[in-house]
Design a protein around this nucleic acid. Structure first.
Length: 471
RNA sequence: CGAGGGGUAGAGCAGCCUGGUAGCUCGUUUGGCUCAUAACCAAAAGGUCGCAAGUUCAAAUCUUGCCCCCUCAACCA
């Protein structure tokens, strides 16, 4: 059996967990659980991105030592991931000393592809950032936030020569050696690749204090790319240890907003290191609230912890894996969530478990032996193509089919007739069907799946509490 | 000339690449059943497939033009 490495994007810890982070974790978790189901050994990375001036400032504003600030926020994310029922094996914090040392070694290793260059542009000392020429023109040379004229500023940055690897990256994408999902994102990335300039990977220390120092240059600190992207391999102890057991990654899950960095900069780093590219980069969409992007200023941000609190992990997983598209943007509303919970989880699945187990109990039926269950090809194909929502749909149709079969076969009528042989035969078929479906649900709803297996193996007993009580 | 996605029944979506009776879920209406969480099953109503032109025996599907919405390009996941 193979070894499979799966990664998630590491969130920037200048805030609390967002409902959007959950999508990334859940998709990766479904992928991981499915791989385990197939018998593969899985390593699953998660982590937090903790450097940068934004975080430095936030900590300062709150009068907390920055180390404490990031530790507290990182903890929030770890708790969040656990509440989602996500089984990660490795957690990396970019402020870990191991990570920092390894990133510096990585920098040294790819030095041939790094050069120092001057950057000149318009700068706002209030915003502490460079602005584009376009922005400069739009604002007539004055920062609207600070009412200060922009200054011409020159600074030195280290650059990574993406240009050295463009051909290799394009080949990898086109040949699907590095598969980018969904397909339309692949097209987008290929276009971007052509225009992609070399990328700045450091900042002067005067501008960015909270970060990993560039080896051999006290004036420069690494900018986010080298620091954060490297996490996927530093967590495997690269370059201190051989990572060929796990690398290349089977799948890396990212949001569409950061796909470009994972599809352009990250491959360049890997190629510079002489490492293989990940086999798949799967990008998901954003969660909208009532069709609008969530933002603090509009005040429509959905707190994932509130959802988890109210309906629990399994309902959360259900909604975000089945009613949120695997690849495209999707809408979240409480109404949709509750409809899905009541009509589908409670009525379709919960009620099915209830009615079938009760019927078995009443008629004193139990399965003699649990047959070996094989996953269907159609389901496996969907899972292998990372079309998790479609695979979940496929499983759900089977749940509904069992409800129909019960109606068709009318076991209650057989019971009244006293046709025990036929009744047992029917119940046996139904229970086996349910156990088969249950296997398909396993990666999506692990707890529920375990409960159902428990209920229907050995002596069949209806659950003391309904699986999903209606709300 | 920046790039990408979308516009299909009241709502949310699939179908489009590989043209050939327009499909799914929810909602609505009606009927059935009683094992079950007032749950389950069935049937019906409901669509000029954004607009216009072209190719074709045949277009939601291919081509062209236009209109509208969204996203990314820049640190609000």
């Amino acid at each position: 059996m193979g070894k499979v490495y799966i990664t998630t994007a590491i969130p920037y810890v200048n805030g609390v967990p967002h409902v959007g982070h959950a999508v990334d974790y859940l998709l990766a978790d479904v992928c991981a659980r499915y791989q385990k189901q197939l018998g593969n050994e899985v390593r699953f990375q998660a982590g937090t991105d903790e450097h940068g001036s934004k975080i430095w400032q936030k900590a300062k504003e709150q009068n907390i030592p920055v180390e404490e600030y990031v530790a507290a926020n990182s903890k929030k994310f770890q708790d969040f991931i656990s509440k989602l029922g996500v089984e990660y094996t490795d957690f990396v914090r970019t402020t870990d000393s191991d990570h920092q040392e390894r990133v510096q070694k990585i920098w040294e290793k790819i030095k041939d592809h790094i050069y120092l260059a001057k950057y000149e542009g318009w700068y706002c000392s209030g915003c502490e950032r460079f602005i584009t020429d376009k922005e400069y023109e739009e604002n007539n040379g004055v920062c609207p936030d600070h009412q200060k004229p922009y200054e011409k500023l020159e600074e030195e940055n280290y650059y990574l020569k993406i240009s050295d690897f463009k051909d290799q990256i394009r080949d990898a994408i086109e040949s699907h050696k590095m598969l980018i999902l969904p397909e339309f994102r692949e097209k987008e990335i290929l276009k971007l690749l052509e225009e992609s300039p070399d990328v700045s990977i450091s900042r002067p220390r005067s501008q960015l204090t909270w970060g990993i120092p560039v080896p051999g240059d006290d004036n420069q600190v690494m900018y986010v790319w080298m620091d954060a992207l490297s996490n996927y391999i530093t967590v495997l102890s690269y370059p201190d240890e051989d990572i060929s057991n796990w690398w290349p990654a089977y799948a890396q899950f990212v949001g569409k907003d950061i796909l470009r960095f994972h599809a352009l900069i990250w491959p360049a780093i890997l190629l510079a290191l002489g490492l293989e590219l990940p086999k798949t980069l799967s990008s998901h969409g954003m969660i909208l609230a009532n069709g609008q992007k969530m933002s603090k200023s509009i005040g429509n941000v959905i707190d994932p912890l509130e959802v988890l609190e109210k309906h629990g992990t399994e309902a959360f997983r259900y909604y975000f894996l089945r009613h949120v598209d695997t690849f495209a943007d999707s809408d979240f509303t409480w109404e949709k969530f509750e409809d899905a919970y009541n009509n589908e989880l409670a009525n379709d699945l919960g009620n099915l478990v209830q009615r079938l187990s009760t019927m078995c109990k009443k008629n004193n039926f139990s399965l003699n032996h649990v047959p070996e269950i094989k996953l269907e090809k159609e389901y496996c194909d969907l899972m292998n193509e990372f079309r998790f929502k479609d695979a979940f749909d496929f499983a759900w149709e089977k749940v509904q089919a069992i409800n129909k079969k019960i109606d068709d076969e009318k076991p209650w009528a057989l019971a009244k007739e006293g046709n025990v042989e036929k009744l047992n035969q029917v119940l046996s078929g139904l229970v086996v069907n349910l156990l088969e479906v249950n296997e398909l649900l396993k990666p999506f709803l692990p707890e529920t799946s375990a409960k159902i297996a428990e209920i229907f193996t050995n002596e069949i007993m209806p659950p003391a509490e309904p699986l999903f009580p209606k709300k």
